[in-house]
Design a protein around this nucleic acid. Structure first.
Lengths: 149, 149
DNA sequence: CGTCACTAGTTACAATTGAAACCATGTCCT
DNA sequence: AGGACATGGTTTCAATTGTAACTAGTGACG
């Protein structure tokens, strides 16, 4: 067992600081240009992708906890980006969808986001990009294993 | 330009949620078992690695801002994990080193941390691990490019 | 029915964080 | 020397966040 550790080669640190830097850099787009926060952005994408979701499902799709989702949903409703349809079977829950304004916002942000991602990934070949995503997948599933036992 | 975006395949999201999950999972070790926070852990590692550093240098090595470092250093001093040696050339600055207690703590945490990392990386071959780090490096340098222009 | 366990979503509270202001010092330039 | 400007580090303040408590339902089981 090595008794020395270099932050630069310690995966948790590397992931964290990379994610942090990506986040800061990218969030300039949706925060500054479009006035929404990261949680809102995630909810927006989830709703655009799946159509109609309850808060709980948004949480599941975006790996945010329910508090964060609740707040994002409140703000987005406020802004007129989404509407609630009460659920018959369960009056606590509501189905959420994007309003036309929400969809419109989505359509304006997505190209920018994808474009930014593309610029970030530019130095990697198609091959490397696929490898990267494959490795991230493996780590994800491994983490699930680790936390279950 | 595609007009559709899947969170699951959007690199910023993937990185962020992976890093988040890693962080939560790992921090159980140093938060719960050893009573230190992530900023303290990072400072600890930097000092163990480089010996004697000013706050400013700790910040540089750990990609934390100076406020976070300042607070971590204050707490660690409080706990007797490090000592300050005033700098002759510049009385604002101080050189920081780990005390024996600090080193001792470091020596107890590192094996746990490395062991945890090893378990996380277990499903990847040596080859894949190297590839992963190589790709992270590329993204890091690419980010630097992007933010400079 | 009634009550006990569970769940969807919100609120309250405390901790963590970063931006900006700040203090004290150092550096540069004339 | 003496101002203007930069720098190491701390403090203040406001924003973001998660944990825990809570509200209001739902469902199962006697």
């Amino acid at each position: 067992m090595d008794d020395k550790l270099s932050l630069q080669q310690f995966l948790p640190y590397r992931c964290n600081s990379l994610a942090q830097r990506i986040s800061v850099s990218l969030s300039r787009i949706y925060v500054r240009q479009f006035g929404i926060t990261v949680p809102e952005w995630r909810a927006l994408v989830a709703l655009a992708e799946y159509g109609e979701l309850q808060s709980k499902q948004i949480a599941a799709h975006t790996s945010m906890d329910k508090v964060r989702v609740s707040r994002a949903v409140a703000i987005m409703t406020e802004k007129g980006l989404l509407n609630r349809r009460p659920c018959d079977r369960d009056s606590r829950a509501a189905f959420l969808t994007l309003t036309e304004a929400g969809l419109e916002l989505y359509r304006r942000i997505v190209p920018e986001a994808l474009d930014w991602e593309e610029r970030l990934l530019a130095p990697l070949s198609e091959q490397e990009q696929a490898t990267l995503f494959g490795l991230l997948d493996k780590l994800d599933t491994r983490l699930a294993e680790l936390s279950s036992d």
